[in-house]
Amino acid sequence: MILAHLLLLFTPAELIDRVAVSVGVNVITESELVEQMRIRAFLEGVPLRLDGDSKRDAADRLIQQALIRREIETTRYVTPEPAQANGLLASFKQSRFANDDAAFEAALRAAQVTAADVRASFLWQLTVLRFIEYRFRPGVQVSPEDIREYYELKFLPEWRARTADLPPQLDAATPSIEEILVQARIDNQLDRWISQTRTQVSIRYREEVLGEK
């Protein structure tokens, strides 16, 4: 009995959480990383994978989040109201669970995530979309020459490859082409901004959590 108590006394302490990645003076902990992976797996309806590569992918997404969050805080972009995420959650429940609350709750339990986690995830998506719109859209310019070039070099060949119908005239196709080009350029700017921002802040991946690359 005494021995048992002694053994209990020396029971190794259980690791609860630790630093997985640091972004400047901010951290992403191991539990945060796993939680993010669970939510993503749940939202995408794919099985959870906790191998090293998946963890690094999840870490990269969280690093992006941290960088965007930092920018939002320092430049004080207006963030969406939490209630705005409810609409997204409702349409998710509708599309995936046909508004079956019990099935939704069971799936949440199975995935070890909560409805609040999912709502927070949707809210974050809205925040990022708004940030991108405010931060990058004003700087994107699309000229009529760009639209014509896209129409001739991409739009028409793709149309002809798809259908034998007569393609729409340039004027008619202009709004959709303009939107495509704007979105592509916003994506481009976002990528450039993220890679540039990454160089301005010290980012360290902890191998004891993520494994060696």
């Binding site: 690791l15 959480d17 630790r18 640091s22 901010n26 951290v27 902890r206």
Partner: peptide, 12 residues
């Protein structure tokens, strides 16, 4: 970690 005084932090 925000104090930047620590390299690693494990909570057990």
């Amino acid at each position: 970690y925000k104090t930047n005084r620590f390299d690693t932090i494990h909570v057990e």
